[in-house]
Design a protein around this nucleic acid. Structure first.
Lengths: 214, 214
DNA sequence: CGATGGCATGTTGTGAACAATAGTGTTGAC
DNA sequence: GTCAACACTATTGTTCACAACATGCCATCG
């Protein structure tokens, strides 16, 4: 759909990987060296990532990796709840038997990761599950928007995944989502997804209160 | 001394105004003449509007105004329903008495426009009302996403506004939204908004079926 | 007559040089 | 010692020229 400046993908990945942490200045000349492309390509990539909300540009002052406050992460997650509610509902309508199997297998993997307290693996499976639901829902617009929102809040998402005990709670919620989808119950799937993300928002709000006092 | 104009905004407006219809090639050199800026600025604007989904770029083949199919307009409106449901819910929570007055006045204006069969004025009030709800909701992320989605489907939105009898139906739905918001009933506001956009989707689907047979 | 290959043209992509700007340090008067 | 003016540096913004690519045309060949 959107023709991507090739280097934008690499820069996006690097930002999401934490190579360039939030607030870091993105100096065009340095980026040309790192990626081996001209300054024009770098500038195009920065414009693109600016439009995506991953990068902030100020006139004559260059680009920085955008800082996402906890309050903003809450907003992002609220928007995700609305859109992924739609996604879950569609997935419940459109999932095939093979999709059901795939989703149940993912839940099983997640349970295994929780049992082994492997937070990194759980976090990856989390992403995979949400991605699978979007693929099953076959809703390009919602898919793109959700992918972008997830990217923007990626740092907070990661922090969340490392919380002790969080995975157990999260697993139950994801299991409920998959149950509703495999049962072919769109309203229940939407509700389960919204409940899941409401619980994420709950944690974010606690951080927000804590950060305000710190 | 004229400060450098953000040419992306002007180009976006021109696309939305229909100066450049869907499918039209956007040739960089021509745009430099029209807007009196260098090719680099035009390229940056095109990258930005590409990321917004208003423009389509293909490698070595330039940019065109993006064509939005009816099917895609349906998806866009479905995403809007999810997000504007959130907006309506928040507006119902956060609206002040002054906001209530403003919303009621807008409905009165819309009723007047319907009585006079002034479709253009009704369409503008429609935009104003949705915008007012977003302002009242104070949710930046949803606001930005909805504004973008509306832009992308602007063409179909306009066609919808010209349908005979559409305004009457639309007015009743908007009135229901405002009633729920002024009553401070978030779930009802969300439901009313979703019902309104479901009705828009209904019309779009009829067009889709018609277009498929034509 | 149709297909193929090269040329001409229009347009985009890229690199380098230059101009403009913000930030920073230095100097000097008081 | 303070503060303002100034010059210096790093970086972004802009322009220009040219290379790369896509497309349509036409001649040549089968």
């Amino acid at each position: 759909m959107v023709i991507t400046v090739p280097v934008a993908d690499r820069l996006r990945d690097d930002i999401l990987e934490g190579v360039f942490p939030p607030g870091e200045r993105l100096i065009e000349l340095q980026l040309t060296e790192r990626y081996g492309v001209g300054r024009a390509a770098i500038r195009a990539a920065l414009v693109e990532l600016d439009a995506e909300g991953l990068v902030q540009r100020e006139a004559n002052r260059g680009a920085t990796v955008r800082r996402i406050s906890v309050a903003e992460a809450v907003e992002i997650t609220e928007a995700r709840a609305a859109l992924e509610g739609l996604v879950a509902s569609l997935a419940a309508q459109r999932a095939t038997e093979a999709d059901h199997d795939e989703l149940r297998a993912l839940i099983a993997d997640m349970r295994d990761a929780v049992d082994q307290d492997d937070k990194l693996r759980y976090s990856k499976l989390n992403r995979t599950l949400h991605g699978a639901l979007r693929r099953i829902a076959r809703h390009q617009v919602a898919d793109d928007l959700v992918a972008n929102l997830r990217n923007r809040a990626a740092h907070h998402q990661f922090r969340l995944a490392l919380m002790p005990g969080r995975a157990v709670e999260s697993l139950a919620q994801h299991s409920a989502i998959v149950d509703a989808v495999t049962a072919g119950d769109p309203p229940a799937a939407e509700q389960a997804m919204r409940a899941h993300l409401a619980s994420v928002i709950e944690v974010l709000r606690q951080w927000e209160a804590f950060d305000a006092h710190a």
